[in-house]
């Protein structure tokens, strides 16, 4: 899939959203996770970045097609000594952005361990996107694109290379994961209704269901109708002559 597809018109900060998704950003220390995230949320390169301590949180709303998706992003520390802390944040993540540094072979070698951790600790439907960061430093490259791509295919994860310095492909992994999660919802393997799935409906989606406008997800309309009904009830509560107003 061409990565440009994701770059177009994804920047939009809106208040309402259709889905809320929880992501974790993982990978070896110094691979540029925080910078990638910073570029994604602030649209600028983070200079003089320190090692992340424990876990940091940020969020951003993106648009994918007609859908607005709010991403809750948990940026984890890559350093070994924080593993005991960061491991706890895998719980209930819907997506994981697995980052390695294309100029550091070590960070690529260790990917299997990270992926195994993510798969065991997060939900089984976890969508993983592998990101080869620092793609602007072609001269220092130690991991070939083809090799990483093969690894990604073998391990059933999405893959692309990005640069948090130039901003190239910075949004793509997040949107890629969002798209995969939406597809999982559509196919019924993921249910945003249930707590801990890492995904939940936003007010906007509910309103849309409520106003019985079309939702492109077949299964969604089935499960969401119930919710829509609940919303209707809620609306009724404060319309004519009820006790609460």
């Amino acid at each position: 899939m061409p990565s440009n597809y994701y770059d177009s018109d994804a920047t939009e900060l809106v208040e309402t959203y259709d889905f809320l998704m929880k992501y974790i950003v993982i990978g070896e220390a110094g691979t540029g996770k925080s910078c990638l995230l910073h570029h994604f949320t602030h649209n600028s390169f983070k200079d003089h970045s320190q090692h992340t301590i424990g876990v940091e949180f940020s969020s951003r709303t993106v648009r994918l097609g007609e859908k607005r998706i709010k991403l809750q992003l948990w940026d984890t520390a890559g350093q070994e000594r924080f593993r005991s802390v960061t491991r706890s944040y895998y719980r209930g993540a819907a997506g994981a952005i697995l980052v390695y540094d294309i100029t550091n072979r070590e960070s690529f070698i260790n990917l299997s361990r990270w992926l195994a951790d993510a798969r065991t600790l997060a939900s089984p439907n976890l969508v993983v996107v592998l990101v080869g960061n620092k793609s602007d430093r072609e001269d220092d490259r130690e991991v070939e694109w083809a090799e990483a791509s093969r690894w990604a295919a073998e391990n059933d994860v999405h893959f692309l290379e990005a640069s948090s310095l130039t901003g190239e492909n910075v949004e793509a992994p997040f949107l890629m994961a969002a798209r995969a999660i939406l597809l999982a919802i559509e196919s019924g393997t993921l249910d945003p209704e249930k707590a801990g799935s890492g995904v939940s409906y936003g007010d906007r989606a509910l309103r849309r269901v409520n106003s019985s406008s079309r939702l492109s997800f077949g299964s969604l309309s089935g499960s969401a109708r119930r919710k829509g009904g609940a919303v209707k009830l809620k609306v009724k509560n404060w319309i004519p002559g009820s006790k609460c107003c």
Binding site: S88, R91, S123, K194, A195, S197
Partner: peptide
């Protein structure tokens, strides 16, 4: 979580660090 995923935090009560860490992370 739904259908047991993610597993209940108390399932890991035997692993004190994970147990405490999971609770605090939550």
């Amino acid at each position: 979580g739904p259908s047991g995923y993610p597993r209940p935090i108390e399932l890991h009560a035997h692993d004190p660090l994970r147990y405490v860490g999971d609770m605090l992370a939550w």
